[in-house]
Design a protein around this nucleic acid. Structure first.
Lengths: 245, 245
DNA sequence: GGCACCGGTTACGTATACAATTGAAGCGTG
DNA sequence: CACGCTTCAATTGTATACGTAACCGGTGCC
């Protein structure tokens, strides 16, 4: 529950009198990113409760602002808002996991031809840089960083298609994928193989959208296949199944 | 601005003491639907301002609840939240319109094969009923109803794929499409041709997913082509361009 | 006569206070 | 000894109050 403690940085001092420096909106955005990152990087595990009071104190704003942020996270399905129980990090079901990966399959693969058509030298450089940093993070064992970079890579790729709506959608799917990995992923193995992204960049550089799409399809299938989807039965749910009824 | 008046129904009486009958959450949902419907049905036109006080009074809840709802609408891009200026119905740009229809092209067409595979007799009956009601609304000149039914038809179709994530995405795209039609649509002609949906149902009934997808593609292209996308220049933006700067 | 400055007013942003509901522990009873 | 009831604490839901920034008049000056 104190996994957010690293963000306290004694902000309570300035919290008392806020609003004179017009950083209101940016501050909210920063807090949103903090929580979002913490979830995506698995520093907040699925099921973790997010009490409004605690968050409000940690970030030095009142519950009003926190509620706004939690609501936004809920709409992106990163947190679950149970009516009188508060917020907690979403624990995706097996069905949701399948839906998310099916959706990624359709959208990300469908986007590759357009991306291959529009990609520039500068884009390629940036992608290579991201892939490189991701490999580095993997090598040095910085799991959190690697996870975030991987999601960022996929989103960046989608954004190169020029379609902001679909890019944003892919971004959300990637965030949710990170949650899915947290629940169903085998420990140690975290989704994207280290060299996969580099290979993908190669196809895009060659302008071969079809090959890129096919590779992306295999890539996503591989991630999904690496999941061990075993819906753990929580609280004696078999009573109904066991006794006829 | 009083386009919401039909929903007042003198609720102020019970507003004073709320919370004893536990309709809090459902009430919020109802208000959300009211506003959402009003936008989708073009009873609230793009650009219309949505003042928090006014909405709060009309629906008999405090601004707190209204803000929550407006925020949700903003995340679905039905309303635009300008920092110190309040909320207004989103006026989609030409670029957004293109993005939305490209996204629909990819997702809705891509979903057709799976829908054709899973569709049941009951589903077909329901779809036919919806298409019928839509035709009827068109015939009797009830534009608002027709628009909403058309969007509902497309979303329902997507939901038959079994992928909740993609279905929800399609739903949002349809809502935004409705906004786009409000801005760029030619008056009188409102998107889907009256018999198109019936034809589509025919292909699905035959289990021909490929044909259905091809037809959906033409259908969406036809809608997009019917738009008159002329980005009106709003506030003297050409001064810089006109005088060599 | 037009432009710029400037108060008043309106409406949003934030915090805080209160009400209501849920969860769990404690107690009593069958 | 176990089950159910009651009470209490914790936490969210809602409303309201206050501060502050943005619009819109008027007024004075150039």
């Amino acid at each position: 529950m104190n996994q957010l403690a690293d963000h306290a940085e004694s902000r309570k001092g300035r919290a008392r009198r806020l609003g004179k420096n017009g950083d209101g909106a940016e501050r909210h955005e920063a807090i949103y990113r903090s929580i979002s990152d913490a979830i995506i990087e698995h520093r907040l595990r699925p099921g973790a409760r997010l009490r409004e009071d605690a968050l409000a104190e940690v970030f030095g704003i009142s519950r009003t602002g926190i509620r706004k942020i939690l609501q936004r996270l809920a709409l992106e399905q990163l947190v679950t808002l149970t009516p009188r129980r508060g917020a907690s990090v979403t624990r995706p079901t097996a069905d949701e996991a399948k839906d998310v990966f099916d959706a990624r399959q359709m959208v990300e693969c469908g986007l590759m031809p357009e991306v291959a058509r529009r990609i520039t030298e500068a884009d390629l450089r940036e992608l290579r840089d991201m892939a490189c940093r991701e490999r580095e993070a993997l090598r040095t064992g910085e799991q959190s960083t690697a996870i975030k970079l991987s999601a960022a890579f996929h989103e960046r790729l989608a954004r190169l298609s020029g379609n902001a709506t679909l890019a944003e959608f892919v971004g959300r799917l990637c965030s949710r994928s990170s949650l899915i990995l947290a629940v169903y992923g085998s420990p140690g193995h975290l989704g994207c193989e280290s060299h996969d992204h580099d290979d993908l960049i190669g196809y895009l550089e060659a302008g071969n959208g079809e090959r890129a799409a096919a590779f992306m399809s295999r890539h996503l299938k591989a991630i999904e296949a690496s999941l061990s989807i075993v819906e753990e039965v929580d609280e004696a749910p078999d009573l109904h199944r066991i006794f006829g009824h």
